[in-house]
Design a protein around this nucleic acid. Sequence first.
DNA 1: GTAGGGTTAG
Length: 647
Amino acid sequence: MKFVEKMKCLFHYYPKNASFSSFFNSFTTHQLTTLTAFPQDPQILLITLCSNGQLKEALIEMAAQGLEMKFEGYDMLLNACIKRRAFREGQRVHAHMIKSRYLPPLYLRNRLIIFYGKCDRLRDARNVLDEMPEKNVVSWTAMISAYSQRGSASQALDLFVQMLRSVTEPNEFTFATVLSSCTGTFGFELGRQIHSLIIKRTLDTHIFVGSSLLDMYAKAGRIHEAREVFESLPERDVVSCTAIISGYAQLGLDAEALELFRRLNLEGMTSNYVTNASVLTALSGLAALDLGKQVHNHVLRCNLPFCVVLQNSLIDMYSKCGNLIYSRRVFDSMPERTVISWNAMLVGYSKHGMGREVVELYELMRNENKIKPDSVTVLGVLSGCSHGGMEDVGLKIFDEMVNGKDGVEPDIEHYGCIVDLLGRAGRVEEAFEFIKKMPFEPTAALWGSLLGACRVHSNIDVGEFVGRRLLEIEPENAGNYVILSNLYASAGRWEDVRMVRDLMMKKAVKKDPGRSWIELDQTLHSFHASDRSHPRRQEVFAKLKELSIKLKEAGYVPDLSCVLHDVDEEQKERILLGHSEKLALTFGLISTSDRTPLRVIKNLRICVDCHNFAKFVSKIYLREVCLRDKNRFHHISKGICSCGDYW
DNA sequence: GTAGGGTTAG
């Protein structure tokens, strides 16, 4: 009894504006259990019930206490509801306050905002804020945070601006929160102004504010500014390090992300699952399978919590490194999956041209009926049907989507998949009609996909129309000129071939430099066209010469139409032989033992000649070649490619 | 009491 008396005394003197829950959390479970064994002060009973997680009983007690309910009781109840995200229960507590005409102090109103925010009830949270006779920095920040975490960036920014006009000054919590909503053109402009404000208050080296700031710059594509903020931080922690690594990775600066990850590890950075998920994104981009496996091992060894996000990253990494068996193994082992897990697996099959597996998995997803498909799901399925030669299934799924069966709103990308699908199947005219009837303005990418189909199926009428249209709306894209010129060449229209080439020279079209690479023993060997920088370049070029002769004897004919430079044939052949994917492939041949499969990655689409070259290599040297280009995987074996020569 | 980084697609 002594203990109970002592506690009652403590309650009495406990400061009224302080959190009661924190006071009570300092008691051990044993002490709390002891308490329940004694005749109760109603207030103590309520507190004990909340601490034991007996929310239902606590609500009954609240009803019984009626007008006697006090600050401490409400505080405990709300605290329990926030912890458990118990919306209905919390709502009853709020209703009880109103019914008893209890006027909650500022602190409790703030707790209500936090409670509603965590339960996704933004409208309710906002009502509490709007009805407050006075607000402090916590009230504003809690509401801004609620908006920002629910993805309502513009509302978060609006409220922040409103706060600046009020008497309350933002603090480091507010800045760290609001910066995470500074995305898009407008958000970024405001973010810059906030940055100046932060500098004025010498808050720019605050670790929370700083990481939020650097993340904002990175997401706006300003990686140098992000790096500057990162370097100016007086101390670093796992979040700021992860923010900068993921900044690089998300911009496709995979090598830089990896480099930084390695350096920070050497400096003693502790990584967590977010860091590892981010570095896996970079490794996916690089197709660095050995390094990816290393991260996987590391995660297992360190007993990092194996959360869905990390597993999703692993699925994606293995699939982008060409190892779908491993992807599926991770997928199958997951106790819980999100829509992203399904999407990553579906997109994996799709990029490998495995249409049947895509459709099977999609059916499994729908039969399980646990996770709802989203826009990316359908995109993966449609493109999987297209790449996997399952036109009818794809069209059926698209129809269902348009009729609202999936609950997914079709957008221009989905229409693009159908254009691709029809074009691939040789139904070029139909694809053309489909575009004309779309409820969207066709994009350059969409016309581009139709132009590709026109070339493969030699449809000069549609192709000429589409090609000229494309040169108008996207004159800087070299790829369009190449395809149109190929199309004219296939029809023997040499005048037009010359015209397209001249036009291309005149418009000074810059082409993305092609790059290919191959991973050997955890090292990436990268090549660009006619690259002479690799330490083993002489061996590579010697082998390439040998290959050229050997392959020609076997029937390989260089496709000179892939070279648009106005040079003689001999030189064209030399240019063609210097393509980066041929260099990487040749390097793989001389650096690995017989029959080892070769995995080559190219940053752009593979050219027709290199594709053909790889097919001959696979046949003559009995090698399996797995080639990842910008669009998809090519599994080449015994002279045959999984893409069916259409990509 | 309020705070920063993450996974698919493009």
